[in-house]
Amino acid sequence: MKKNITYFGEVEINSPQETNEVKVTIDSHQIELDLNFYDGVPEYDWVAEYENYTKGLKQYKADVEAAIRSDYEDGGDVKEYIDFHLEELDASIIDKVLASTDASKPKEERLLSALKLVRIGFYPGEENYAVWDYSIGREIADMLVVVNTDSTGKINYVTWES
């Protein structure tokens, strides 16, 4: 049985493809969305759960970005990500990334503000229901700041990975 799913269009809901991908614009930035069923289709109404999550997407994005800032301020993984890139990237690359940021702020703050949402992966039936990936630029660095939420938007954890 096919259903029209927000962002993805027509999807076979009882036996969807293992991964469904689409590019969308959120807050005037193009990002990738993917809907993943690596462990099969959940027994419950995953479509309703997904649709409910997408209704809160803007608020969840605000919450995720607040968690990123909080993790940075607490000296967590995001601070480590920022420090790593300031140390490892060539100064000319850092300058390019920082070009559109507020020059009156410290480099660390500016690099933090350069983090942009690049992907949200949805995993119906999983504890980490939505995986939010942020980058300073995929052409610049393969490392991502990653925030995992449950199906209600509650943040499970913030980390960085490649």
Rank of each mutant, 00 (worst) to 15 (best):
Q59F: 07
K79S: 05
K58Y: 12
R69A: 05
E80D: 07
E80R: 01
K61D: 14
V64K: 05
E80P: 00
S70Q: 07
L57G: 05
L57W: 06
D77E: 08
Y72R: 03
E43S: 15
T54D: 06
K58I: 08
E65M: 13
E49H: 11
Y72V: 02
Y50R: 11
A62E: 08
K61P: 07
E80F: 01
D71M: 00
D74K: 05
K55Y: 13
A66C: 05
G76E: 00
E65T: 13
L57E: 08
S70W: 00
D71R: 00
K55E: 13
V64C: 06
A48D: 14
G75W: 00
Y53E: 11
D74C: 03
N52K: 10
K79R: 13
K79E: 03
V78K: 02
E51P: 09
D45Q: 13
E43Q: 12
D45G: 14
T54E: 08
E51T: 12
Y53Q: 12
N52L: 11
W46G: 09
I68T: 05
K58A: 12
S70M: 03
D71K: 00
G56T: 04
E49R: 11
G75E: 04
Y60T: 10
Y72K: 03
W46S: 10
E43D: 15
A62Q: 06
A66Y: 05
V47F: 13
V47C: 14
Y72M: 03
E43L: 12
G76M: 01
T54K: 03
N52A: 14
E51H: 08
E73V: 02
D74W: 01
D63Q: 09
Y53I: 10
K55M: 15
E51A: 09
D74A: 06
